[in-house]
Design a protein around this nucleic acid. Structure first.
Length: 1119
RNA sequence: GGGCCUGUAGCUCAGGUGGUUAGAGCGCACGCCUGAUAAGCGUGAGGUCACAGGUUCAACUCCUGUCAGGCCCA
């Protein structure tokens, strides 16, 4: 039965997995197989009706190629979903696509620009000068949006192919798409709900603005674009006016105040200066007697004027900031006339002014800074806005009119110099936000925008966040929590084209009259027009829907903006189900999520938009509590992963050219190894280096070991006739080694399951690798190898049954991390897909024997010491020795019962365990600081120092568990004597006698290194076997081929060989063993079949030996 | 400048309610094994646990500060 061949030429019931088989090829076959048998659908069907476990997939934008960091994030999502499925849950895994927004528009805009260059013969610079918005409006919004809709799925096929290749089990067939009418309608419903609750309002705010894209950016978008740039650092000294009482003024000196800015172009719009009322300011004059003074913060003097400033400057006056408030000054540039309203050229007090940089005096341009704008509101300052939305100065401005503000630093500086107000100009490098798509430096710019009043639910946001289990917790409590507590209203409108249109209609005669439309039906009713069958809610079509204002005057027209794409993705919990329009019960079944996982860069992105929208909507969503009533979060657990860096620890970026092509990496290592490496190398929330050498050395090696165990130990021998059957001994009847590995297996199974339940994938991987490598491969298989060479007999069956169980359970534990090789293994062993299996076995079938685990640990420690002793003795393991004596800290541990394993592993004839009472043992005492410290406090070191002085009698008492009284003369009157308990003293037993001793942590071995002539002969016989086995391999024989063997050598060798002739024959599968010339050995080289003979000469302790093997023909028969 | 994280062997990382000799893998050296073989195994050498103070009988671990790196935000 075992030597049958199947259609693929594979022998036996267990398919072979040769180590040279490339992981990539094996995985690709499984990809195809899974597709053919619709494995994902099978898995989902098998769990239909089971307790749901809800997962949300953060939708990616498919207009860029997926990178290795996507593989990382998806490996995390996938593994927890797979684990929960195998745990018995129904896990819906609906993919989604984020399809709106600037990223899409930018791509299409680039196409349009390229086409225009080609068509009109323009250069890139000429096209860029036209500006994005003009370019788009030239082709028309309808055409532009049509192309956006097309472009958004440019890389959809590649995404889907990669996701399939990496084994990301997700439903891509029914993916939700944010641009669909259903999705948009749900988003409208939510916005109308917020509008009705008074949470949607129009405001005027300073926002980060991209002049090229012509749009404001959300804070999460700003976060994406910080770059280190060199900017001007400019000090201007402005003339102070008034205050004739000042000493310098009385002395007729010109008085100036020093102001620092990094944006000289905003000086054009300067209307005020701000000082901190609490800070101390000084007015200084050069000792060399120039006719002018400077005023600045005292704390900044050294930094601005030099560390030795006090030796070169006199302080004329020291005042606090509030004394400066209200004083007048002369603005640096007078190009922009003041409006009728608002104060100007005045010093105001503001607490945000710090003494950490600059001069302690800040210039205020309310149109160009959030702080400035707020100060402008507080102090009623004038508002100068000489800059267009394209970031260019109005044409009416002298010198710089029509120029981009960031490009005219030199002109401005020159003008300041001419006007004699420039004090000092240099440059400095700092992080400045840039447009995350086009790289243009952002401007802070006051403009009108629509906001969600998230500040009104701030407490609720914080409370709901507290209900989220963050992995790691510090992201939720720190990074995210800190930020939430400083929440500002969410600016959701964008002056763009390809996005969900903001469903607000405003009366063109009275902007305070606003209507929110919450569904397509409402739109039809309000506009009095039936919607066409091919209704498209996007621009520009939606803008055609207008109607007479309900108030009687004017026309309701849609406000022109679209919404922030983060709102789209944050609305996915309900919008993916077209809530509340279709099957509203579906949302209740899928809300809230049990689990989401994304990169840390989503903290202010999707993590926030999900929470903000859910909180703002409150009880408009099912199972979401009432606003203000902290009960629920839209996701219960979130696993946050950090960046994937390159091998040198550098951030990956296209510009550095150090990005990794996932396909190439997968081809080299297989995705299983890549996934294991990404998840297992360190906690996922720590940035990790992507190092291919490390993949090979860790995950790759682990998988090779696992395949070796299956192929090299299990399958090729099991195919001689073993398969699970009733003939296999019951677990309790198997040898200790088998029971031990099964006990370790059960412990690993429980640990991995618990760790995954606790969202700790990294530790789970490490536990599993430790089991396979440390316990199964390095110990169980190595010590059991000989048991796999036969398939009959109880011991052999026990070994096969044990290893079969270990491999089967291991494949299940591995399935969430390495879904391919685990599935291959499970199918090979059980005939079924691992992904349909249960993650853990029923508790009753998990064998545990903790005492055996502990005893085996001791045995392994003793073996380590014994190996070290053999090293010291310089006797190789092949040479048998007579005796090894062992001592363990607890003489009643179970290690002694496993002495046979030590004897076999160390090749010694006998292993003895010595107890405290043994004459060969001397005891040593050592203080146990942990227990001594509790009892003796400050006297601990003195008492501990006395412990080693205890005599053998006292130590034997302690070893027997009795207390000992100890006189302590040096300890003073408080401690004339102490009572030592056994817990306070660690007893170390040392074997003594004529032996090589190794000791560690209370474990001692003593090896007798004597090699008697009888032991030498036994060693020589083993040497012969070893040489013959090597010859067999070199000759290319199969493991089951029979041979004939000729041995010739000195008398000692031949005597040793004759003594163990039958044993040698059995070990090397020899049908005949001839020893010495008198037995008529053939001469080497007479073989007729090439490759079937081999010979070798070796020497053993100066005794030469000649070996000749010959493949036995069918005629040789058994002897 | 603020928030969060990190700093342990040449490299990648564990760990510890404070307690005796701080661990693993890789790499390195030496050796073993030879029916897992373009495999397997063992032993060993490598560390003032970033630095400085403090608390304590005892600090790599707790506290404070400093330095360096990372991420996020100003």
């Amino acid at each position: 039965m075992p030597s049958t061949f199947d259609a693929n030429g594979v022998r036996g019931p267990y398919p072979l997995l040769p180590p040279e088989r490339a992981a990539d090829a094996l995985e690709r076959e499984l990809v195809a197989q899974w597709r053919d048998e619709q494995l994902y659908e099978q898995v989902q069907a098998a769990r239909e009706g089971a307790e749901p476990w809800v997962f949300y997939d953060g939708p990616p934008t498919a207009n860029g190629k997926p990178g290795i960091h996507h593989v990382f994030a998806r490996a995390i999502k996938d593994l927890f979903c797979r684990h929960r499925v195998m745990r018995g849950h129904y896990v819906s895994r609906r993919a989604g696509w984020d399809t709106h927004g600037l990223p899409v528009e930018i791509e299409v805009e680039k196409q349009i620009a390229r086409e225009k260059m080609a068509r009109d013969g323009l250069t890139a610079e000429q096209v860029a000068a036209i500006g994005g918005k003009k370019l788009i409006e030239e082709v028309g919004i309808a055409e532009f949006n049509r192309r956006c809709r097309e472009s958004v799925f440019t890389y959809k096929a590649e995404w889907e192919a990669l996701m399939e290749r990496i084994g990301h089990a997700m439903d891509y067939q029914q993916a939700y798409v944010t641009y669909t009418n259903e999705y948009v309608e749900s988003v409208w419903w939510s916005l109308r709900t917020l509008f009705d609750r008074g949470m949607l309002h129009r405001g005027h705010k300073v926002v980060p603005f991209c002049p090229r894209c012509g749009t404001a950016l959300s804070s999460h978008e700003v976060a994406l674009g910080y770059q280190d740039v060199s900017d001007p650092s400019v000090y201007v000294a402005l003339d102070l006016a008034g205050d004739a009482a000042a000493p310098a003024a009385a002395a007729g000196l010109r008085r100036r105040i020093l102001v620092w800015t990094t944006t000289p172009w905003t000086l054009v719009s300067n209307v005020a200066l701000a000082v901190n009322p609490e800070l101390t300011y000084v007015e200084v004059r050069k000792k060399s007697g120039q006719p002018w003074t400077l005023t600045l913060a005292e704390a900044r003097a050294a930094a601005v004027l030099g560390d030795d400033w006090s030796s070169r400057w006199d302080v004329l006056q020291t005042v606090t900031g509030d004394a400066l408030v209200g004083q007048r000054y002369v603005r640096p540039l007078d190009w922009v006339p003041y409006p009728d309203e608002g104060a100007h050229e005045v010093i105001v007090g503001e607490s945000f002014v710090s003494a950490d940089d600059g001069s302690g005096v800040v210039h205020m341009a309310p149109a160009f800074g959030a702080d400035d704008y707020a100060a402008g509101q507080r102090h009623g300052l004038a508002f100068l806005q000489p800059v267009t939305q394209r970031g260019e100065f109005d044409a009416s401005i002298p010198l710089v009119g029509g120029r981009f503000v960031k490009a005219v630093d030199q002109e401005i500086l020159g003008e300041l110099e001419r006007r004699d107000v420039l004090w000092k100009a240099s440059t400095f490098v700092h992080a400045y936000p840039h447009c995350w798509r086009c790289g243009t430096p952002l401007l802070y710019y006051a403009r009108s925008s629509w906001f969600i009043r998230t500040t009104s639910v701030k407490d609720d946001l914080v409370a709901r966040n507290a209900a989220i289990a963050w992995h790691p917790p510090e992201v939720g409590a720190g990074r995210f929590g800190e930020w939430l507590s400083n929440n500002v209203d969410w600016a959701i409108s964008r002056d763009r084209y390809w996005g969900t249109p903001l469903p607000l209609w405003v009366n063109d005669a009275d902007p305070t009259e606003v209507q929110a439309i919450g569904s397509f039906a409402e739109l039809a009713a309000a506009s009095g027009r039936a919607l066409p069958p091919n209704f498209d809610p996007h621009r520009p079509f939606i803008d055609d829907y207008t109607w007479p204002a309900p108030s009687g005057t004017g026309t309701m027209r849609r406000t022109s903006e679209v919404i922030d794409v983060w709102y789209d993705s944050g609305a996915m919990p309900f919008a993916q189900w077209h809530y509340p329009f279709t099957h509203p019960e579906r949302l209740a079944q899928h809300y809230p999520a049990d689990f989401i996982a994304e990169g840390v860069d989503q903290t202010r992105g999707w993590f926030y938009s999900l929470l903000a929208i859910a909180t703002a909507l409150g009880d408009a969503l099912p199972r979401n509590g009432r606003a203000g009533e902290a009960v629920a979060a839209p996701y219960r657990h979130v696993v946050v992963n950090d960046l994937v860096l390159d091998a040198k620890g550098q951030k990956m970026s296209k510009s550095k050219g150090n990005t990794v092509d996932p396909w190439a990496v997968i081809e080299r290592h297989g995705i299983d190894a890549v996934r294991l490496f990404l998840v297992g190398s360190s906690q996922v929330w720590v940035p990790r280096r992507f190092d291919e050498a490390a993949i090979r050395d860790t995950a790759g090696r682990f998988l090779v070991t696992l395949k070796n165990i299956y192929h090299g130990i299990f399958a090729q021998y099991a195919n001689f006739g073993w398969s699970p059957s009733a003939l296999d001994p019951a677990v309790a009847a198997r040898p200790p080694l088998d029971r031990w590995i099964l006990s370790r297996l059960s412990e690993t199974e429980q640990a991995v399951d618990a760790l995954l339940g606790d969202y700790d994938a990294t530790l789970a991987v490490k536990r599993l690798i430790d089991f396979v490598d440390g316990d199964l491969s390095k110990w169980y298989v190595r010590l059991s190898r000989a048991r796999f060479y036969e398939v009959d007999g109880a011991d052999h069956r026990a070994a096969f049954a044990t290893l079969h169980e270990c491999l089967t359970v291991t494949s299940r534990l591995l399935a969430p991390f390495a879904p391919f090789v685990s599935d291959w293994l499970h199918r090979a062993l059980m005939g079924t897909s691992v992904h349909l299996a249960s993650f853990v076995r029923p508790a009753a079938t998990r064998y545990r024997e903790p005492a055996l685990d502990a005893a085996m640990d001791e045995v392994r420690t003793l073996c380590t010491l014994a190996h070290a002793a053999r090293d010291v003795a310089d006797v190789k393991v092949r040479q048998p020795l007579a005796l090894l004596r062992c001592v363990v800290p607890d003489e009643h541990s179970g290690a002694a019962a496993l002495g046979g394993l030590i004897a076999a592993e160390l090749n010694v004839k006998a292993v003895e365990f010595l107890g405290s009472g043994d004459a060969l043992v001397t005891l040593e005492g050592k203080g146990n600081f942990r227990t001594l410290g509790k009892a003796f406090g400050k006297a601990t070191p003195q008492v501990a120092a006395l412990v080693p002085t205890l005599d053998q009698g006292a130590l034997r008492e302690l070893a027997a568990g009795r207390e000992v009284r100890l006189a302590t003369p040096g300890l003073g009157p408080d401690w004339p004597e102490v009572l030592l308990t056994p817990e306070q003293v660690t007893i170390i037993r040392r074997a003594s006698g004529d032996a090589i001793v190794q000791e560690s942590g209370g474990y001692v071995v003593a090896l007798d290194p004597t090699i008697t002539p009888a032991l030498w002969r036994e060693g020589a016989a083993r040497e012969v076997v070893s040489r013959v086995q090597r010859l067999r391999r070199e000759t290319g024989l199969d493991v089951s081929d029979r041979i004939t063997l000729d041995i010739r050598g000195g008398a000692t060798i031949e005597t040793a060989a004759r003594e163990r002739r039958d044993w040698i024959a059995g070990e090397v599968l020899a049908t005949a063993v001839r020893i010495g010339a008198d037995e008529g050995a053939d001469e080497a080289g007479t073989a007729s079949v090439p490759g079937s003979t081999g010979s070798a000469t070796a020497s053993l302790d100066d005794n030469a030996m000649h070996l000749l093997i010959r493949k036995a023909g069918p005629d040789d028969g058994d002897r």
